[in-house]
Amino acid sequence: MSTFAIAGRELRSLFTTVTGWLVLTGYLFLTGFFWTAMASMYAMQSQDAIVSPYMAAQVDMTDYLVAPFFGNTAIVWLMFCPALSMRLFASERKDRTLELLLTAPVSTAEIVLGKFFGALGFVAVMLACTAHYPLLLMRWGNPDLGAFAAAYLGTLLLAGGLLAMGMLFSAFTESQVVAFVLTVAAGLTLWVFSWVGGGADSLASQIAIVTHAQDLFRGILRLSDIAYFIAFIGVFLFATHQRVESFRWS
């Protein structure tokens, strides 16, 4: 129960500060720009497909619009997730409020989970603010809503992974800037692994976080991808738990 109380407090705190709204503004502007550009480009491809049966057979809203959009905007989360996670513990340590939290009748696990779900809730709100993308497509075309749902789930899992990693760095430093930079660097490194050659089955590709979201963006859920994200988030949350727990005995 305390987990939800902490999550609610985190979520509210993001909406009562300018930072939360600015993050939301930036995200919506960037994704809105991407969406408009890509939808216009897809409309042009559709025009070509009308006279070309080969193209018409291949052009698909999921493959040519939805999946590339979520794939391209995934890089945006590499900036916004560290921005959300950097303050979770670093600011508490700097403001000396972590001690208060640790002495409250809540377990470390509840604190860590509460903060994680609070930040993830904000990501969910950010994604919900893009609901007009599929809604407009439904009015003007015939999008695959199942693929959209899978793509949103993939984005949520990807953002969850980056948030969990950012939380760990935030727990290691009092400086939000350091936490931000470390999370971006680590996220970028994990991203770059997907560019390393060797095919989809290579070790580098298996480690890369974005590789496991690609199929979700196209409407396919794989047990292995879900397991990766659960393991990824779980390990970083556990490491954060251990780090926060260390404040009790150090």
Binding site: A39, Y42, A43, S46, Q47, A49, I50, P53, Y54, A56, A57, V59, D60, M61, T62, L65, L137, W140, G141, N142
Partner: peptide
Amino acid sequence: AAETDQLLQ
């Protein structure tokens, strides 16, 4: 070719 309803005009 299957009648595509995937085009966006």
